[in-house]
Write a protein that binds this DNA or RNA. Structure first.
Lengths: 166, 166
DNA sequence: CGGTATCCCCTAAGATACTG
DNA sequence: CAGTATCTTAGGGGATACCG
């Protein structure tokens, strides 16, 4: 079967740290639900698939064309994962040529709603983020320039000393 | 400088598909804000760091010990990214031994609030997900068993034919 | 059409060692 | 203590070929 799976059946203990606040919810280890869902949500193509499917039911090839850049393999994998988690349902019609429809389940819809709040947050704060990045980049660039200047100076001093000695 | 960076300055066009609903918001390409934030939120350690820092300011080593499994390199990288995005602030005290404090910015706090809704969603639906997975796994296991049985049968028929012919 | 199976590459992340 | 630099490895993901 060559298990190349996303949610491997690791031992998965999650309740370990005896702190008052449940940080274990954020644990990176497999077996932690939040982590699993987050990984599913965050992987390269899932979001696009979910966003597209909320609008209407789509066939495999329709998704493939809509997404632009996704390989057949990755789209299939993504859909299998979403299906396994109950977020997307798969309907096969025994016609010829075969036809397979994908649609968001109710669960998938509620997840999409939740994700949207993250989108909303991003939209609301993207200018702040952009500013922060610009500031950070400017500062680090300045620091690097200064470091190089200092290094050059040390070098010059070293050369001068050697010349005087030689 | 050996740019091993998360948010590379790719050309990054985002507004392309002329559809009514802004699916481009979900695009996987760099330059898409939602994607960038999601990547930041979703990567292996960021969430843990954010969750821990909301409780109180922490030093590098405190984070390192608290997280368990993070390498020094990855923690440093994660913190640099979060700092660049303005989610975490870094304070260096010119003492000896050196001391560096990390704390969540206001922006970081609001993000944490937003992320919590995803945690809430997960908590609310994790039993549904577990059920979906169990159902899926049972079904696929059954399908595989059936496929193997059918293959064995075909094999037996083939052998019998060969025997009768020989 | 709607997929699997196979190969392969490249990068992200871990391990290790060194520095201010 | 709080990092950076360097090397190495695992696996995510693309390309290709084939199957029902």
């Amino acid at each position: 079967m060559t298990v190349e799976d996303g949610t491997s059946p690791t031992p998965g203990y999650c309740a370990d740290t005896g702190t008052d606040y449940d940080v274990s919810q954020w644990d990176t280890r497999e077996g932690c639900e939040v982590r699993q869902i987050l990984d599913r949500v965050a992987d390269k193509w899932s979001l696009l698939v979910i966003a597209l499917l909320e609008r209407r039911t789509l066939r495999f090839t329709e998704l493939r064309r809509a997404i632009d850049g996704v390989s057949q393999r990755m789209l299939a994998r993504t859909l299998r994962h979403l299906e396994r988690d109950g977020l997307v349902s798969r309907t096969v019609y025994a016609t010829v040529p075969p036809r397979v429809d994908y649609r968001l389940t109710d669960l998938g819809c509620t997840l999409h709603e939740t994700i949207k709040s993250l989108v909303t947050w991003t939209e609301a704060h993207q200018s702040e983020i952009a500013t922060a990045r610009a500031t950070y980049d400017r500062r680090t660039a300045a620091e690097q320039a200064e470091a190089e200047r200092a290094a050059a100076e040390r070098d010059a001093v070293a050369r001068r000393v050697l010349t005087e000695l030689g």
